[in-house]
Design a binder for these strands. Structure first.
Lengths: 337, 337
DNA sequence: CTGTTAGCGCCTTCAA
DNA sequence: TTGAAGGCGCTAACAG
């Protein structure tokens, strides 16, 4: 059955096509195509004949060829950055699973300096992707236009840019900012502060703003402790400043950084709970015994569903007005506050 | 310039093809194709004409159509599981970046009960993938044959199955097992043990075996403390047993679980360093102040390169004998041992 | 170096 | 419901 050249297991991937199946089943190629197309018009009888022949020959529909005629592939770009933050990983995994569950194939595109999101999305446009999901820094707006022109939906997660045809899913940052203040005060904290990356992320900024705005409303002062990046190391460094300033209640805009804050406090001999800490995201480490971090759960599964809903509805209605979905947050109380 | 129906920004993705570019540039479609094919035979002059026209029209090569003729796409399947373990995330990110750097597109496929690796790899075969990288549980062997038939290279990471045409990259588990013993003894531990998932992972098992074999060689006893899964929770639970058994030096086959062990010890009031702990992988958390875990670094970047080397060399030599590459490990000494 | 000619594997009208 | 025919966008093989 193998091609030629009897070197044991010669290659030359002799692929079987719909033509082969058609011949074997005694039907036309169109019939084969229909048999493998959901709700196409085929009799059960031919369908079975086709399936039978297909199985015997080891036939698989070539989805790439299919997308050529369909003008749309099953691929969805997943543009991500900061995967060292465990929350990002969770998001990624949930998105990937949710996509696969709906028969999409996620193309993973980690961003960095060399490969920024714009370049990367540009690349995606070569594959007739069904959509693009962005968790990294928001790309420059010109890329949105390109996508719009090619009819490729984009969904941004926790980003701020308001742009025609670009949908977004954002977590309820005002809620977390406000609640953080209230809870810190409830636990007895007097001198509050918030740690957040300087203009690094939309959600980060919004949480910090909400926190401060709530404080202002209550007539208390609450400085922003700026850091370069919202990560463990910078959280750790911020802990010192915190102590210098006499803060006893702090909101770290994500857990990843909050872990650093807690460790920094512990290192300075203040791991006794005298400084209350609230994080955000409820990453696995937040419930680890070393931290037991009070935090806001931001359910990735819900978020993923929201994202995909936006994606699919935009596919059917490309010209719809841009929408924003809010992911609810829930305060999880633990030892740290 | 837009199609019809003047509803402001009407859609109907009017894609521009090589035909359009050819016409605009006054050349043939083949010329256009060549202009976009690395080291194809085109004069600089036509190439420029083509680029010019392409830019004006906003042309992009349709890679899907290209793969149709090439019979091979740029896609590489990334089959992964256990992404809650931060080391897995690191692997994933490095693999993805390494692939993209070489102009492959990683398709992310997280596995689980519903979507086991076999099913998932089967799906991939519809896309003429250039290869498959497996970090999850090894798939059943029949899938290897299917891939071999279709000429799709597979590389397994830290898996044991020895199968024709299937290459593997494995970390130097014997080395870590041996070194763990020696280092624990050096730091003064007397009663050793190793914690490992029961038949859950190849590397896990191999590390444990090496550990015990070294102990036997030194004439000391070293029980295996079995757990269901090598994760934080089970590490935490294992800590109790450890103390019951009077162990004072333990090798946890991965860091993720080791963090649980350390937390379990701390919770039992034995976070004083009286029980030495060594982990494996050097995940970010291992260097967090709460843990300062002595561990083995297993460089993801090296591993990723090894994987891709195997992948690409098998593409050119599909019938080569299966190879195994070893990833070196390095002991990183920290507070925990 | 360039254009022409055939497909790659599939899907979608269109008649029957 | 079925088959025939044409085309999706691109590239490889072959002249010139």
């Amino acid at each position: 059955m193998r091609p030629k050249e009897g070197n044991g297991l010669s290659r030359e991937p002799r692929r079987v096509t719909s033509f082969d199946v058609a011949r074997a089943a005694g039907v036309s190629r169109a019939a084969v195509s229909r048999a493998f197309t959901p709700d196409a018009s085929v009799s059960e009888k031919t369908r079975q004949k086709v399936y039978q022949a297909a199985k015997e020959l080891g036939y698989r529909v070539n989805y790439l060829a299919r997308s050529l005629t369909n003008k749309r592939s099953d691929f969805v770009g997943l543009v991500a950055a900061g995967l060292d933050n465990p929350y990002r990983t969770q998001q990624l995994e949930h998105l990937a699973r949710a996509l696969i569950a709906r028969n999409y194939r996620p193309i993973l595109l980690p961003t960095s300096k060399e490969a920024d999101s714009a370049t990367v999305i540009g690349q995606l446009l070569h594959y007739s992707v069904s959509g693009v999901i962005v968790t990294s820094d928001a790309p420059p707006s010109h890329i949105f236009e390109e996508c719009a022109v090619e009819g490729v939906p984009i969904v941004l997660i926790n980003k701020g840019e308001d742009f025609p045809f670009v949908d977004r899913v954002v977590s309820d940052d005002r809620m977390s900012g406000y609640t953080a203040v209230d809870h810190l005060i409830e636990t007895g904290a007097k001198r509050l502060a918030v740690i957040a990356g300087k203009a690094v992320s939309y959600s980060s900024r919004r949480r910090a703003e909400a926190f401060q705005s709530r404080c202002t409303g209550l007539g208390i002062e609450a400085p922003l402790i700026p850091v370069a990046i919202n990560d463990y190391r910078h959280g750790h460094e911020a802990a010192e400043k915190l102590l210098d300033m006499g803060i006893d209640g702090v909101f770290s805009v994500n857990d990843y950084m909050a872990c650093g804050v807690l460790d920094g406090l512990a290192k300075a001999g203040r791991g006794d709970g005298s400084v209350k800490v609230i994080g955000h995201d409820d990453i696995p480490q937040a419930s680890w015994i070393a931290y037991e971090l009070t935090t806001f759960q931001q359910p990735c599964d819900v978020q993923a569903e929201q994202v995909i809903d936006l994606l699919t509805s935009r596919m059917s209605e490309p010209d719809a007005v841009a929408r924003v979905e809010f992911t609810p947050v829930t305060l999880i109380k633990r030892r740290s506050a």
